[in-house]
Design a protein around this nucleic acid. Structure first.
Lengths: 209, 209
DNA sequence: ACTTTTGCACTGACCAGTCAGTTCAAAATG
DNA sequence: CATTTTGAACTGACTGGTCAGTGCAAAAGT
């Protein structure tokens, strides 16, 4: 008995099933929305019986909620890593923002469905997972805000900038540009998109040539 | 739309009920999503019998589709008007972009639910109204792209900018900043938000003081 | 007169969640 | 060994409820 008091690493069968369910749910919900996606569909795409879904998750919304948390934590870690790497390499705060834009693009490139689904749910009110969503969102945006604030302190950015609003605007810029990229010109390279956004960030838009 | 005052043309009784149905549907769908919103709820909030919904619209999705089209057409008209007004007043293309940012903010300020619902649906695939959505979206973005292109021609913007991508990024900037504004700091004034975005647009972020 | 709205009962499809039963590999037993 | 036992993981038919859409006779506008 006690077959799997296993090493918490997550190499259990159960963990593998959960992973398959996440992957199935993410694409289906991104395509159709939460309510329009049935548990039967998720189970079928994951190659698993419906009961298994309920063995692994308390309900359809709990499955979704854990999916959201998992995904945003991935993004936050990636942004933080980009900021810290730039710091270590002695880059400016603009360099850090630029590195974070790239990290954002890389994330969206890798998980377009997740991003799409996240955007669709972020500003909804009256939903079960609203608070969860809020918390993880704030973690991610806080990384950007942190860099902006340090930049102001160092005198690299104007003292007049509105940190939270500027952070939102930057996130929006990357989010929408990337989603449009993936939806309408998926053949373009990441570098290409990145350089266009860099240019915009550094105000090299106006000013001829 | 949501808190419209305008009689907007048709003075028939029918037109008034349709308007009430639009208003009810917009807020409910923004809160809960399309599938989670029932026709009974919409009818109840509009203060109308369920049969009336089906007397006025062929189906739930048709109601939604017409709502989408109607809303985006409003926005497009508003953007176009802002650009043309700047043109007449002899403003630069940067002034035109700035005026359009303001027009966008005014729109979102007036119709937050619509905006929210629109964002939630825009990048979804496999849905009935996808093509409708695509067409109207392109009309709106095309206005921004037009101004950018003219700015390049006049030498006001760099020839190296990527017009469609820059337009997307600008739209995203305004969209996300405004939705965050409405969600988390609704007490702030429009002018305040507008000036923060202007600053970002004109690259007055980096460069101290 | 004619258009529009109401109220309400009804149908048939669809779906979240349940539960009694199955599988199987590891642990206990002899 | 060989066997029995255990329990976590999984299965899929079934249930109870929900909801889009229908039908229609009577009432209310205009």
């Amino acid at each position: 008995m006690e077959s799997s008091s296993a090493p918490s690493g997550g190499s259990t069968r159960r963990e593998a099933t959960r992973q398959k369910l996440y992957e199935a749910a993410v694409t289906l919900i991104a395509e159709q929305g939460f309510s329009a996606t049935t548990v039967d569909e998720i189970a079928e795409r994951a190659g698993v019986a419906k009961g298994t879904v309920y063995y692994n998750f308390a309900s359809k919304s709990v499955l979704f909620e854990e999916l959201l948390r998992h995904g945003v934590e991935l993004l936050t870690a990636s942004l933080r890593e980009a900021a810290e790497r730039t710091e270590r390499d002695g880059g400016t705060k603009v360099d850090a923002l630029d590195a974070m834009i790239r990290a954002g693009l890389v994330f969206i490139d890798r998980y377009p469905s997740f991003t799409q689904l996240y955007v669709a749910e972020l500003w909804r009110t009256n939903r079960a997972w609203q608070s969860t969503l809020m918390v993880v969102r704030q973690q991610a945006v806080a990384v950007v805000e942190g860099v902006l604030r340090e930049g102001v302190k160092k005198g690299e950015f104007s003292e007049e900038i509105d940190v939270p609003l500027t952070a939102s605007a930057l996130v929006g810029m990357v989010l929408v540009a990337a989603l449009d990229w993936k939806s309408f010109q998926p053949e373009r390279s990441l570098d290409d998109v990145h350089s266009a956004l860099s240019r915009l960030l550094q105000g090299r838009v106006s000013g001829g040539r």
